[in-house]
Simulated assay, not measured.
Amino acid sequence: MRFVPPKSTDQLAVQAVHRIRRRLIADRVRLANQIRGLLSEHGIVIARDISQLRRGLSIIAGSTDDSLSDLVRSLMRELQAELTEIDYRIAVYDREIREIFRTSDQCQRLGKIEGIGPVTATALIAAVGDRSCFKNGRQFAAWLGLVPKQRSSRGRARLFGISKRGDRYLRTLTIHGARAGGKQDPRSLWLDKLRQRRHPNVAAVALANKNARIVWAMLSAGTFYESALAVTAT
């Protein structure tokens, strides 16, 4: 088992920002689910998209033509205000993360990788610290839980789904970032071909694994991202 060295004060501060933001996002998800559940009991169904929920609440709060009672409508206004407050607090932490990203050379370099933005870059730098504790990119990807589980018997190696070990937050960020596509560079074309052969989730994990190895290579060598070499990176 490998352990990441103790983190600096700055790294711990950045991690605190991420943890508070993550908790607020979880609170927003729980609140949104409760609002949808309450409205569905009155025959009002709102799509799962958070923007649709905001628009729906605005209409409900200002309308008197539906079947909602005055008490329920008053409760919806309170929940709308609570949702607005959470949105505002998340936006504050998003601005803080963008400022950290803007002032960090390492984060700026990682941000050049397709699928890694300010949130993922700052979270990786804050969590990893000293890159020398990993011998290669595969160990770093394994630390993130992005490599397949392996079981060997009689000289035969059987590969299963990813191990999902390590930090779930970092793994989620890298996989969600890998889902972005639509470009025509060699790396995106490679991903499009992979999506044609495999399930989109498998393709996203494969790209997240590749991104993790690229991150380790860049941090360990102090180099910049070169998209022309990304397709063959291992």
Rank of each mutant, 00 (worst) to 15 (best):
F3Q: 14
K7M: 01
D10F: 10
D10Q: 12
V14F: 01
V17M: 02
V17I: 11
R19G: 07
R21V: 03
R23H: 07
R23E: 09
A26R: 07
A26S: 12
A26Q: 13
R28F: 04
R28A: 09
R28Y: 04
A32W: 06
A32D: 13
I35K: 04
I35P: 03
R36A: 03
G43P: 07
G43Q: 08
I44Q: 05
I44M: 07
I46D: 02
D49L: 09
R54P: 00
R55F: 01
G56V: 04
S58Q: 13
S58V: 01
T64P: 00
D70Y: 04
L71M: 11
R73K: 14
M76N: 02
M76L: 14
E78L: 09
A81P: 04
T84W: 06
E85V: 03
I86K: 13
D87Y: 08
Y88P: 00
R89T: 03
R95N: 06
F101N: 09
R102Q: 14
D105W: 02
Q106E: 14
Q108H: 12
R109C: 06
L110I: 02
G115L: 02
I116T: 05
I116S: 08
P118T: 00
T120K: 00
A121K: 01
L124W: 07
V128N: 06
S132R: 15
S132H: 14
N136W: 08
W143R: 03
W143S: 01
W143F: 14
G145V: 05
K149S: 13
K149P: 01
S152E: 15
R154N: 15
L159Y: 15
F160Q: 08
S163C: 14
K164N: 10
K164R: 15
K164E: 08
R168H: 05
R171S: 07
I175T: 12
H176M: 11
R179S: 08
K183F: 00
Q184F: 06
Q184K: 12
R187C: 01
W190L: 01
W190N: 03
L191D: 03
K193R: 15
L194D: 08
L194N: 07
R195I: 04
Q196G: 14
Q196K: 14
R198Y: 03
N201F: 10
V202A: 15
A203Y: 02
V205Y: 04
N209S: 02
N211W: 00
N211Y: 00
V215K: 09
A217K: 14
L219D: 11
E226I: 10
E226W: 10
S227P: 11
S227T: 10
A228E: 11
A230I: 07
T232M: 11
A233K: 08
T234F: 11
T234D: 12
